[in-house]
């Protein structure tokens, strides 16, 4: 009986693993295969295998849409915005978690409420602000904006980690003569690294995938980001689907590489964050 149970459990386990692996990988594989087809093949049967792999689609993606420059812009925007966002979120979360002052919870609630504000509703005010300060058509406008719009979620996540971080460790550091900044940078930040990586992951993905403001606030080819590059192959009535899919494949590579490099921290951050938030 035990053997049967074990066998059934093993079958179910592997069935679920394979099912979810296919469920997750299929869109990626389809995307890659489709990016090697011609538009005619794509229209004829979206699930067919290309007769002759069209690597030209990738050349088109790079040469026509200038994807290289756009990837570079996206990388710099995403890294800077994530760095600024996490630093500000960590400081705000530390204050909200450690210091007792009037209105603390109201401030936290206001920060958290920001998650619920649809960003498209803020296009006019943001455009006006960046226009007034002369930052239109500059990557700095995106860096500042992304760092700011990600704060509600980052503070929500990081504060959860800081709340569960034992005060005794800080107190011990204080007794040993560690000052305020020393405690924050040498004790609190390293020990809440998991939460910071979790928040940074979400923030990076937001920055990498954001399109509306990237399109609104930039105009010259020198300031375009990768999401605009992907849409280079669409227009009013027609779309070069296969070249667009090639551009999408190129665009998701940095996310996959980033995930491979930091998967340990990301997974532990996401799993522990799920119960601490």
């Amino acid at each position: 009986m035990n053997t049967v149970k074990k066998g059934l459990f093993g079958f179910l386990k592997w069935f679920l693993i394979i099912f979810f692996a296919i469920y997750t990988l299929f869109p990626l594989v389809w995307l890659f295969v489709t990016s090697l087809k011609t538009n005619a093949e794509y229209f004829a049967n979206p699930f067919s295998i290309p007769a002759i792999p069209q690597f030209q689609n990738y050349i088109n993606a790079f040469s026509q849409a200038n994807l290289g420059r756009m990837i570079f812009n996206s990388v710099t925007v995403a890294f800077i915005a994530t760095f600024v966002n996490i630093m500000v979120a960590a400081m705000a979360s530390y204050a909200l978690s450690r210091f007792k002052f009037k209105g603390r919870e109201v401030i936290f609630a206001l920060f958290s409420a920001g998650v619920m504000v649809p960003l498209n509703a803020l296009m006019v005010p943001y455009f006006t602000i960046f226009s007034k300060v002369g930052l239109l058509d500059s990557l700095n406008s995106l860096r500042i904006l992304y760092a700011a719009i990600g704060l509600p979620l980052s503070i929500f996540i990081v504060r959860g980690f800081m709340d569960s971080f034992p005060r005794e460790i800080e107190e011990a550091a204080y007794v040993d003569g560690c000052g305020f900044f020393g405690r924050f940078f040498k004790i609190v930040l390293p020990l809440t690294k998991t939460g910071l990586v979790t928040a940074a992951t979400f923030q990076f993905l937001t920055c990498w995938n954001e399109f509306v403001y990237a399109n609104l606030l930039t105009s010259s080819p020198e300031t375009k980001t990768i999401q605009i590059g992907i849409r280079y192959f669409t227009n009013q009535f027609t779309t070069d689907y296969v070249s667009m899919y090639a551009a999408i494949v190129i665009a998701i590579i940095p996310s996959i590489v980033g995930y491979m490099l930091f998967q340990e921290q990301i997974i532990s951050g996401l799993t522990s964050g799920a119960v601490k938030g």
Binding site: N73, V75, T76, F79, I80, F83, S138, L139, N140, E222
Partner: peptide, 13 residues
């Protein structure tokens, strides 16, 4: 990233 972006920020215009 910091170095490159600050360069790109300056170099942009």
């Amino acid at each position: 990233a910091l170095g490159v972006s600050s360069l790109s920020g300056c170099g942009n215009s």
